[in-house]
Amino acid sequence: MTGIVAGIGWHMVGAASAASFYAPIEKVKRWSWETTWAVAGIFSWVLLPISVSYLLLPHFGAFYGSIPSGVLLRMALFGAMWGVGNVSYGLTMRYLGMSLGIGVAIGVTLVVGTLIPPLLNGQAGLLFETRSGLLTMAGIVVALTGVAIVSYAGHMKEMPLKSGGPTEFNVLLGLALAVMCGIFSSGMSFAMNAAKPMQAAALQAGVNPLYSALPSYVFIMGGGALVNFAYCFGRLAMVKKISLGDDLHQPGGVIGRNAALAATGGIMWYLQFFFYAWGAAKIPERLSYVNWMLHMSGYVLFGGIVGLALGEWAGVSSRSIRLLWVGIVVIIAAANLVGLAT
């Protein structure tokens, strides 16, 4: 039981990192969003996955050469699927606003990414015919309730603030994009499910179980990186209002500061899945599908807490803040339900 509690704890550490990674990125000045996102991505999707795996694996090249090409391809394709969801994230915020957009997108991601892998693996009976499965399903329902409450509280916060709400609010289009974002973002969950043969190979190679999932990130995040870089550099090349050359012709101090902030955000983004691997290593294999639910609900949980800590709720009605805390408590209850299931 102690190991399971530790697993949930590590999932929450990863979720906190995920909820905080955009804070340094928001402080970047005089750079386009595309340049900032690409620099952050170089660290989170390329340098860190490769560097960590190089340190972990005794024979880096031979290890990847021993993995069947079909496994590598599935990981990369699911990573690219996640990349599409990542790119569409910004459009969701544009038409729904941050709180409502995140709530819908993560709600869909939570359900799809948690339920589909066991169904594809022929484990549907575990979800509906066992005590642990039923408790997990209850945890998902409670988590979605908490996500909805937190999202509604955030929506109430944004609407009175003209500068904080979406400039082109469109419920139907925004909801469609949020659902699309949620479905494609769940590709990360599918990719991790597809990476299990590589995790087994890492264990056989002598990698500590806590780190056995990390070598798979080279291909998973590599697939997502291709989509994200194509989008960023495509826009930098085609949109007249933004230019990579203009961004790089800033004074040296501006470039250094922006690069450091973007890199910090990228490192924090990677750390969410670093600790996700630690958490997943502590959860029993038969209940591996709960890992994604814990991560996604924790993301919303700490998103609300980080927003409070950064003063984003200053001047907001006490009713909205109370509603936020109710949602946070509900999400904590969902994590405890999943703990009982394990």
Rank of each mutant, 00 (worst) to 15 (best):
I4L: 10
A6I: 15
H11Q: 08
G14K: 00
A15F: 02
P24I: 13
I25P: 07
I25T: 04
K29Q: 13
A38W: 08
G41K: 07
G41P: 06
L48M: 12
S53T: 02
S53W: 01
Y54K: 13
L56Q: 00
L57F: 05
G65Y: 12
S66D: 09
P68E: 11
S69Y: 10
F78K: 06
W82N: 10
G85H: 09
G85T: 04
V87D: 03
L91F: 05
L91P: 00
T92K: 02
M93W: 06
Y95I: 03
G101V: 03
I102R: 09
V108G: 05
T109H: 14
T109A: 15
T109S: 15
T109Y: 10
V111W: 13
L115Q: 05
Q123M: 12
G125A: 10
F128N: 11
F128L: 06
T130V: 06
R131M: 05
G133V: 01
M137G: 06
G139I: 00
V141Y: 03
L144V: 07
I149L: 03
I149Y: 00
S151G: 10
S151M: 06
Y152N: 12
G154Y: 00
M159F: 12
M159R: 10
P160S: 02
L161V: 12
K162E: 07
K162W: 01
G164V: 14
F169N: 05
L177E: 03
F184D: 08
S185W: 15
M192A: 00
A195K: 00
P197K: 07
Q204E: 15
A205C: 11
P209R: 01
L210F: 13
L210E: 09
M221D: 07
A225F: 02
F229P: 02
A230T: 05
Y231P: 10
F233R: 04
R235T: 09
V239W: 11
I242G: 04
S243Q: 09
S243K: 06
D246Y: 07
H249F: 15
G253K: 12
A259V: 12
A263Y: 04
T264A: 15
G265I: 09
I267A: 11
W269Q: 01
F273Q: 04
K282R: 07
L287P: 00
V290I: 10
N291S: 13
N291I: 07
H295D: 14
S297F: 04
G303P: 09
A314M: 12
V316D: 07
R319Q: 14
G327H: 02
I328S: 04
V330E: 08
I332V: 09
A333T: 02
A335C: 11
L337T: 01
V338Y: 04
G339C: 08
A341P: 10
